[in-house]
């Protein structure tokens, strides 16, 4: 009994760090790089992705015995695309500004390898409860990385965080950080730092 409990907890926690989708498994890199020029965009993208991940995980783990093995990928993608349409229309209706700044990257959640990867590796083999925990953990890990990445780029690139000015006038913003190269550089350094921390943890 006790063993089962810890493993349920593990299903959730593993997404936060040990199997963090972006830093450890390198999934979902496209949105992680593309929309993180500010922390708020990163947060919105992370939430939208988590919504799609959670809903499609629930549906797919419920249907896992019904969907024939050969056409499973096509089936998953249709389910995911449906939820992405929902998320896209929701953002356009209620948060038009964010929807505009995310642009085509909201529909591109359909092809976020993170979502399809979790369905294939997890939801198609586990029951609904575990799939929900897994999706929530992965989603939280994804939001975490996106907000950190967006935060770093926003502070250095426009001297603000969540649109509040935090660095004084003495600071000359590094334009490059909110442009594409800044995304690659920041993520590269974050991945390196993640690996370094992990190694230290293992040694201790």
């Amino acid at each position: 009994m006790a063993k089962k409990k810890t493993s349920l907890y593990r299903e959730f926690v593993k997404g936060l760090w040990d199997d963090n989708p972006v830093l450890r498994m390198l999934l979902g890199l496209c949105p992680a790089l593309a929309v993180t020029n500010s922390a708020i965009n990163g947060l919105a993208m992370g939430m939208a992705t988590t919504f799609v991940l959670l809903s499609s995980s629930i549906i797919i783990s419920l249907l896992r015995k019904v969907i024939p093995h050969q056409v499973r990928i096509a089936g998953y993608i249709v389910i995911i695309a449906t939820f992405v349409t929902v998320a896209d229309k929701f953002l356009a209706a209620f948060l038009p500004e964010i929807s505009k700044s995310l642009g085509p990257y909201v529909p591109l959640i359909v092809v976020n390898c993170l979502i399809l990867g979790r369905q294939e590796a997890f939801s198609s083999k586990n029951n609904v409860g575990r799939s929900i925990l897994d999706a929530l953990g992965m989603g939280t890990g994804f939001i975490f990385v996106l907000v950190v990445l967006g935060g770093i780029r926003e502070i250095l690139g426009s001297a603000t965080l969540f649109n509040l000015q935090i660095l004084g006038d003495w600071f000359n913003p590094w334009m490059i950080m909110i442009l594409p190269p800044g995304a690659f550089l920041t993520l590269g350094i974050l991945i390196g730092l993640g690996n370094w921390l992990n190694e230290r943890k293992v040694k201790v």
């Binding site: 594409p180 190269p181 550089l185 993520l187 590269g188 350094i189 390196g192 730092l193 690996n195 190694e199």
Partner: peptide, 23 residues
Amino acid sequence: VPKPFKGAGITMIVAGSLALAFM
């Protein structure tokens, strides 16, 4: 390459310099 940066880390940084060049 420093060990933690091996693989994905250094790839991203190289991609960053490539993006810089493409700008």
